[in-house]
């Protein structure tokens, strides 16, 4: 049983706050969806979990089974059991998928090339990924959908404890989305993979059934509920959860309202310009 716990996570980029106190816990076998509009901080959350450079963690913690994830280098996070399926998988010319995974296995004393090759073949078959892709430079000349299958394939080979899927659905057609979702679901059911699926659209969630749905708006989780929340989102869009335009530091129209952050638990349908002191 593993647990990824994110507590009061606050993150800035170039001094600008992006994540504003995230609290989230994903346990083995659970599928959490984080949904949010563009610019809400979804990708930042996934990058910070994996340790991508360029983000400043101002406060809060991320732990995996009580180990301080933020103190680890990215490769150590991967070896500890975290995986990030990237929204835009990076093209790495001249570096081959099987070579990279072999090095990853060797770094963790997890096995050798033969094991990697065997798993690659098995995983490729599971998601309908042509085997010729296995000996090609990473993500080079792959279509958007092929890149996402490639990410899923690596998930299957590396067998992480917790996987963060950043827009895994983008670029996938309906059939591919189904295959990828089935494969992740299998991991969840059989091995107890914990999933944090970040997505803009509810399309993914009709295939990858979430246990919990979180709505992320302007760096905060403004609502957490069961899968029915995704359905409601489908009807209303994100507008219902959006705070007013100039967001965080808001100066009320009459000049005396001064609020650091919009209240995430306020009635989303309330008039955002209503003066709470009135």
């Amino acid at each position: 049983m593993s647990e990824l716990a994110i507590a009061d996570l606050r993150v800035s980029v170039d001094g600008k706050p992006i994540l504003d106190g995230i609290n989230l816990t994903v346990c083995s076998g659970e599928v959490h969806a984080v949904m949010g509009p563009n610019g809400s901080g979804k990708s930042t959350l996934s990058h910070v979990i994996m340790g991508k450079p360029g983000y400043e963690v101002v406060a809060g913690s991320v732990t995996l089974d009580d180990c301080d994830v933020l103190a680890m280098e990215p490769w150590q996070r991967a070896q500890a059991g975290l995986f990030l399926a990237m929204q835009y998988p990076t093209e790495v010319p001249g570096v081959y998928l099987d070579d990279m995974l072999t090095e990853a296995f060797e770094a963790g004393d997890r096995g050798d090339r033969a094991l990697v090759e065997a798993r690659l073949v098995r995983e490729a078959a599971a998601i309908g990924f042509d085997e010729t892709f296995l000996h090609r430079p990473l993500n080079v000349d792959l279509s958007g959908g092929e890149k996402k299958r490639n990410e899923t394939l690596q998930l299957g080979v590396l067998q992480p404890k917790i996987a963060v899927l950043d827009e895994i659905d983008s670029g996938l057609d309906v059939d591919a989305l189904r295959l990828v979702s089935r494969r992740i679901e299998e991991e969840t059911n059989r091995r107890g993979l914990g999933v944090l699926a970040i997505t803009h659209y509810s399309r993914l969630l009709s295939e990858l059934k979430p246990d919990v749905v979180h709505i992320l708006v302007r760096g905060r989780i403004v609502q957490t509920a069961g899968p029915e929340l995704a359905g409601r989102l489908e009807e209303t869009g994100y507008a219902a959860w959006e705070p007013p335009e100039n967001g965080g530091t808001e100066v009320g129209i009459r000049g005396h309202l001064h609020r650091e952050h919009p209240d995430p638990f306020a009635d989303p349908f309330a008039d955002p310009f209503a003066d709470p002191l009135a």
Partner: peptide, 21 residues
């Protein structure tokens, strides 16, 4: 970062990216 995020050590990632180049 892509390589390191899969569990490859930084010095190995550097070697792979440079030889890949």
């Amino acid at each position: 970062f892509y390589l390191e995020s899969r569990g490859v050590k930084p010095e190995v990632a550097q070697r792979l990216v440079v030889t890949g180049f």
